[in-house]
Design a protein around this nucleic acid. Structure first.
Length: 157
DNA sequence: GCCAACGTTGGC
DNA sequence: GCCAACGTTGGC
């Protein structure tokens, strides 16, 4: 019997499109629209039900960690790739050979305050400079953090 | 709104 | 398979 250790992730969202408040309202949401292979691979190959997620608000006035969530489903094909009218439509994808996968994400908690990226950057040494959160020019919207990084980031709340 | 950084596309 | 052009991300 293999016991699989829980993993920890950061998932970015633009709050204008979908915020932690939106997730709180709906409870569980398919994380659709990811069109980056590396991010897809993390969801498809790395995530397991019960994994912990830091919900990050990007491209907004105060970017930072706004809440926590959990992975609520195994990976499955992102339906929006098949929907001709969706902005996420991918003509090269088919039902037989889906290209894009997602997981469902469930609301866990809204933080008492958004932990600003500015604060996180103060702790580059503690966090590890290679962490995509503080690495300049990073555009990856889904990526793993260690249990230690996860705990430390939340301690900044 | 600007623009640097980056991933993807497509011509060759 | 290279790489310039392009589109997008996301901090500022």
């Amino acid at each position: 019997m293999t016991r699989i250790r829980r993993r920890y992730w950061v998932m970015k969202s633009e709050p204008d499109a979908f915020s932690i408040d939106d997730l709180q309202r709906v409870g569980t949401e398919p994380w659709n629209g990811v069109r980056n292979y590396q991010a897809r691979n993390f969801m498809r190959d790395g995530m397991q039900v019960g994994d912990e997620v830091l919900f990050y608000h990007s491209n907004t006035k105060v970017p930072g960690i706004a809440g926590t969530a959990t992975v609520a489903s195994p990976a499955y094909p992102d339906d929006t790739q098949f929907e001709r009218k969706s902005p996420y439509f991918d003509p090269k994808a088919s039902r037989e050979e889906p290209r894009w996968f997602l997981v469902d994400v469930s609301f866990k908690r809204k933080l008492s305050r958004t932990i600003p990226l500015d604060d996180i950057k103060q702790h580059g040494e503690r966090l590890g400079e290679e962490c995509p959160l503080i690495k300049r020019g990073n555009r990856l919207s889904v990526f793993p953090v260690s249990a230690d990084q996860y705990k430390f980031l939340l301690s900044l709340e």
